[in-house]
Simulated scan of single mutants.
Amino acid sequence: MRQVSHLRIINLELDTNYIKSLIALLDDPDTSVFETVANKIIEEGNEIIPFLEDAWESAHEPIIQNRIEEIIGSIQFNKLKSEFSSWISSPNHDLLEGTLLVSKIQYPELDPKRILEEIENIRRDIWLELNNSLTALEKVKIINHVLFDIYKYKPNTSDYYSPRNYLIKDLVESKKGGAVILTIFYAIISQQLGLPIYCVSIPHNFVLAYEDRYSVDLFEIEFEEERRVLFYINPFSQGSLFSANEIKFFLSQQKIEDNPQYYLPISNYEAIQQLVYNTKIAFQRSNQNAKASQLQKIYNLLQDQKPKPIK
């Protein structure tokens, strides 16, 4: 046993020395040498980040610190892509998990504990007020009261395109967010309560539909599916309710051609796609092009591997 333990210590020291020797080469003025070394470091994955952080703190030249920051960013993004690939291949495409992954673009080391606790507290407080005798409208009124009156969530109408308006971490911390993240947050809580509330993507709007789970789908024509929606909910307007006629009127006012897809719930997969796209635009408008580029890659990944609709 002592020999095995001793060998493990030697191997660990060799790995550590190898890693430190690689990091020491990051100040090489030859660009090709740097790129080769950087790629080897990136291949080591997340485990090498503590070594890089130590090197950053002891570095005296900004160029070396910048190189280390870029390498850490590449490692974290590779991990995020891997996590998104796992989410894509999962059977249920959990809405909360996908939303947390989007926040990791800005917060790679995100600890979701506070977010999960907040959602559970809201879910529990709503659940205590629900019962089977309530109508769909009454259930939504309870959700609205708990979410907007008790927990004080509200739309952020200033600095609309700030990336903070699209990330669940910032939403929970500030109690303010943009239309997309507020709507997805509302959907997460509703679905955890077992309520048939799903996202709907309308041009320039992102809202929710309360489906009639007892409706009988007698037709395959998409317009007939509109009948499965009892009403729509706008979380960006404190959970106000509206009908399909108001969607039709809005499209007419905006001179947008009517389309049945604007009335129908989308999948959680498509909701996360929309969140990724809108967050990318926010980073672009904030001149954070590196983050925007990463989100474009995630969006392309989601687009390339998008599940085909079940016929």
Rank of each mutant, 00 (worst) to 15 (best):
P235H: 11
T183F: 02
A38P: 07
I9W: 04
G239A: 07
P203I: 11
I49K: 10
E270P: 00
L264F: 02
R228F: 03
Y210F: 12
S74H: 03
L14G: 00
I115R: 09
K139V: 12
R2Q: 08
R67W: 07
F51Q: 12
N289F: 10
S162G: 06
F250C: 08
T183N: 09
Y299T: 02
L171H: 01
L134G: 05
R2L: 05
L195D: 09
N289G: 01
K248F: 06
D15T: 01
R164S: 11
P155L: 01
N234W: 02
H93S: 04
I310C: 06
V102Y: 04
E43S: 12
I64V: 15
Q288V: 06
E118L: 05
L100Q: 03
K81C: 14
L195G: 08
L264A: 04
T99Q: 10
Q253P: 01
Q254T: 08
A282E: 00
E226H: 05
Q76N: 15
A24D: 14
E97Y: 05
Q65C: 08
Q284C: 04
K20N: 15
Q296P: 01
I197S: 11
N245A: 06
Y107Q: 00
E225W: 03
C199T: 13
D28K: 03
H204N: 12
V146I: 14
N259Y: 05
I63M: 13
I48M: 03
K154N: 07
K291M: 12
E246C: 05
V229K: 07
I71V: 14
D217F: 11
S74R: 04
E117R: 14
K306A: 15
I75M: 08
V229I: 14
I88Q: 12
H60Y: 11
N11L: 14
G239S: 09
T135D: 07
N46M: 13
G239F: 02
Q284P: 01
D258A: 15
N156T: 01
S89E: 12
E138H: 04
K311G: 08
S58V: 11
S82T: 14
D28Y: 03
D304W: 00
Q305Y: 09
L22A: 01
F223W: 12
E43T: 10
